[in-house]
Write a protein that binds this DNA or RNA. Sequence first.
DNA 1: AAACATTCCTGCACGC
DNA 2: TGCGTGCAGGAATGTT
Length: 277
Amino acid sequence: MPELPEVETIRRGLAGRLTGSRIVAVEVRDPRLRLPVRERDLRALLGARLVAFDRRAKYLLVRTDLGRTIIIHLGMSGRMVSADPSDSLQRHDHVVWRLRLNGGAGEDLRFRDPRRFGLVVTARTGGLPRHPLLRRLGPEPLSDGFDAATLVRSAARRRVAVKAFLMDPAVVVGIGNIYASEVLWRAGVHPRRRADRIAPVRWERIREACVQVLSEAIAAGGTTLRDYRNADGALGTFAVALSVYDRAGRPCRRCATAIRRTVDGGRATYYCARCQR
DNA sequence: AAACATTCCTGCACGC
DNA sequence: TGCGTGCAGGAATGTT
């Protein structure tokens, strides 16, 4: 479900509300996520203070003052729910942290994930860059480390379609199926063009499109297509700003040609055959 | 009721 | 032949 803008929106919401709170209790109600949830590891953090909410790619990193960080991925259908402890738990609330806020009030943080493609693990904070889940990740698209030269270098001898290439987290992180289509429309590049057949000047256009689309989506609180919600349960409003995704048959915003939908590698792809070459 | 916003792994093909 | 790399496909699963 969530791509980088959605995870970033959730991170900001949680940081504002829960930074400085302490873990009072933790409950693992269903450990069967993409990786098994180890209740013992989470219990080792009882009493810990949550000192920062960070993000790497689509991973949420909850740093504690005990030298360990909780790594959370939302998979396709995961949500982080900040709730009043008296609110009843829902069916797919798999992990529940009972927190005490700075002011002393109780607050729940709940990991809810119907499809269970997400994960909740812990790791030493100092070892995060070398953690198996994080160590092969490419640059953050909204950082200085993301430039056209890097893209040109990684695209050499890559015959895959540029859309699949952009979705490869070793190339650049955080770009999933929705934003890959959006970025390529904005850059005017056909989604099935081979990565090794794209000129450097067009890589710079793709880089700019990544930065613009992701920044605008974050400013809009993310894209809600079906069930995405931020930490307060609010919807993201970027769906109305989508140019091609989920707009098959509707007119291209630039040239009015009907947007096409194809399926590549099992994933829906949307593009304008006139604007994108 | 077919589609699905993610990630990781497998197995195959190819080139040196 | 053996190795490394690149790539397509599949699997995990519940909801709408």
